[in-house]
Write a protein that binds this DNA or RNA. Structure first.
Lengths: 231, 231
DNA sequence: CATTGCATGTCGTCG
DNA sequence: CGACGACGTGCAATG
């Protein structure tokens, strides 16, 4: 990894065109040739960047450029597309290189998959007498997160999100349309389950006869722990 | 901006829990206190990070930790939520600070807004005799990209995407449902316009009686340049 | 390899 | 300040 702090300007052409005026920035060149241009604010997203696979070519400025203060021109070319990033380097404040080796990577816990597992275990959160049919119930247009059966034997399709927004309701609606065409399992109720449900999503769901269920992740995890302790 | 290259481990708790095993990494601390942990690969997204606003507290390791090789513990606490990132610093290879100042920011061209402007100017791409009613036609559920009128006086609602996928068709469908409830402008035709339209989106649109229009950005820009030259 | 759906998404914009 | 849609979205899992 090479770290450079320098006054620089940049031009990107690819899916769009963009320009970055002259200013002092951090330039990171990773081992795979990818490049990040960071300012001293914003968030983790760089002002501009080039994703791997790509190649970096450093060249000397021509006479006019040198007269304007350029000390180097970096051309970063994406290997598989015509995306291109040109960085004009002016005064360099820091230029250092370090060998980092391969990273073991991030270990995650607590994503949507976990919510789905918990709700499958605690399917009676839908109401007493509900039973699990199966998780990831396959249909022609993709898997329904959970398919369940209500106390009267009717089918229930459940879509789970961490945060429930309109596109989740649309997704569930497509599943319901499809499932309700199958006379073997129709009629199918829909349940939209999420840790938080946005008002517009709730309105749309209600308008379509889809039930909303707010999930309390901590409480569900707590029940799970208690179960684990008892058995 | 402070740059540190060090052997480190990290734990994040917030919207999820995650752990980063000991390895050599780049740690960037920005002026607003935000922190990025980068490995020497991947992409522009850090392995782990904390977004502003947040505060960084550096503390000494306790005896056990010091015996294990820790030289410092960094606790990054988000100011408005309970997101927390703890970084355990072991051997430090580089530790440098630079003042970058405020960045003038990125200047963009060629996004969806530009496509919309071009199609508004070149509305006859829909077919001869079409006229523009207005861009960003407001409805209760959001703005329709373009509202136009066909040669026979009927209304046309246009949704524009760079890449046309299913959710764009869903969005246009919601607008059409709403607009067609208004007797003053009903019936309203739908046109789904994009530089590229995915097969599934085309099938769904066609099934719903929505017309698909593939936009050639370069050609449209070319026409625009010619116009600009002529007038 | 193309498609799909998630993300600690981030980021602007508008009400 | 919250909600919503766009993004050079990136990214992994899957058919």
């Amino acid at each position: 990894m090479r770290l450079v702090i320098a006054d620089c300007a940049a031009h990107y052409t690819g899916r769009l065109s963009a320009h970055l005026p002259l200013a002092r920035r951090l330039v990171v060149v990773k081992a795979d040739g990818s490049v990040l241009l960071h300012s001293d604010g914003g968030s983790y997203k760089p002002l501009n960047w080039m994703s791997p696979p790509c190649t970096l070519v450093v060249s000397e400025p021509d006479d006019d450029e040198a007269a304007a203060g350029l000390t180097a021109v970096w051309d970063v070319q994406h290997t598989k597309s015509d995306d291109h990033l040109r960085i004009e380097i002016y005064e360099v404040v820091l230029d250092t290189t370090a060998d980092l080796g391969i990273d073991p990577g991030l270990v995650k816990e607590g994503v949507e998959a976990h919510l789905q597992a918990l709700l499958a275990e605690q399917i009676e959160l839908l109401g007493p007498g509900h039973t699990l049919v199966r998780r990831e119930y396959m249909t022609a247009i993709g898997p329904v997160d959970i398919l369940a059966r209500d106390p009267r034997g009717g089918s229930v399709a459940i879509e789970i999100k961490r945060r429930g927004e309109i596109d989740g309701v649309e997704q569930l609606t497509r599943y319901l349309d499809l499932l309700n065409r199958d006379p073997l399992i129709a009629p199918v109720r829909g349940v939209f389950a999420a840790q938080q449900i946005k008002p517009q999503a709730r309105v749309l769901a209600t308008d379509r006869g889809i039930e909303c269920l707010v999930l309390d992740y901590d409480a569900m995890r707590g029940v799970d722990d208690v179960d684990a302790r008892l058995f």
